[in-house]
């Protein structure tokens, strides 16, 4: 059986909130290492990969591999009933029909319990190769969100060009064009506000802004976001969580 308690319900709330517009139904794969999820969006252009390691739960118990097939809209309906600071316990049998969620508020002596029905989901799993990316950019997640939002007002696509001088996000649309360039920058007072660029070779790729704007819904999970790029491979957008990560992969647009 699975029994996993999170210190703060908001971690799972934020994960589901961030991905529910991209993915409707998916399996939460539970084993002794933790809870993982991999799912493509409907158009098969983007891939979500999430891991919450067992060390992020206390206690964590999962005797055998369990796939929890969940409709994310249903899960979100239940998670909205949890306060951010509530303790959240997930429980399921070895061959479950439902997932039990328990929310505990220590300050209010309040206990809420929900069961949501599970579904059989036949999901395709993709092998993600280990990649040495040509460019890795770490920047404040709010900055990345702002850039994607601002440029999406002008265009459907953005080019991301990284070289030793900085990273340039550029777009052009019917009303005109725009760009934002970030140079490497260290904020000594707040490391999370720094922009770091690690580069082995220059890259220039084009992506659909619609997906990037969607990924940025994860911004509340982490103060920083990591963008990993190599020419002609999918972009990796990574948000670190305490004991895991939320990663989005996006296939680049090709040609003119």
């Amino acid at each position: 059986m699975l029994e996993a308690r999170l210190e703060q319900a908001q971690i799972l709330k934020k994960v589901v909130e961030a991905i529910k517009d991209l993915v409707q139904d998916c399996n939460f794969d539970c084993n002794d290492a933790g809870i993982q999820l991999q799912a493509m969006d409907n158009s098969h252009v983007a891939l979500v990969s999430m891991k919450l390691g067992s060390e992020g739960f206390s206690p964590y118990r999962c005797d055998r591999n369990i796939a929890l097939g969940i409709n994310l809209n249903s899960l979100m309906k239940v998670l909205r009933a949890a306060a951010n600071e509530d303790l959240l316990t997930l429980k399921a049998e070895d061959q479950p029909d439902s997932l039990n969620l328990l929310f505990e508020s220590s300050s209010q002596d309040r206990l809420s319990e929900y069961d949501i029905k599970l579904m059989d989901i036949d999901q395709e799993h993709l092998g993600i190769p280990d990649t040495e990316y040509a460019a890795t950019i770490t920047l404040p997640s709010a900055e990345f969100q702002r850039i994607c939002r601002d440029l999406s007002a002008l265009s459907e696509s953005v080019s991301i060009e990284a070289n030793k001088d900085g990273v340039k996000f550029a777009c052009s649309g019917d009303i005109g064009n725009g760009s934002v360039t970030l140079r490497p920058h260290t904020n000594v007072e707040d490391e999370d506000k720094s922009t770091k660029i690690e580069l082995t070779e220059p890259v220039n790729l084009t992506f659909s802004l619609k997906y990037l704007v969607n990924f940025c819904k994860a911004s509340s999970l982490s103060a920083t976001v990591r963008l990993c790029l190599s020419n002609e491979v999918p972009l990796l957008v990574e948000y670190q969580m305490g004991a895991g990560y939320l990663r989005f992969y996006l296939a680049p647009k090709i040609g003119d």
Binding site: M40, S43, H44, V45, A46, L47, E124, H125, L126, G127, I128, P129, S157, T206, S208, V233, P234, Y249, L250, A251, P252, K253, I254, G255, D256
Partner: peptide, 14 residues
């Protein structure tokens, strides 16, 4: 206009 390939054309099915 540019083409939007799927993610499956980069990552193989396992």
């Amino acid at each position: 206009t540019s083409n939007q390939p799927t993610i499956q054309s980069f990552f193989q099915q396992r």
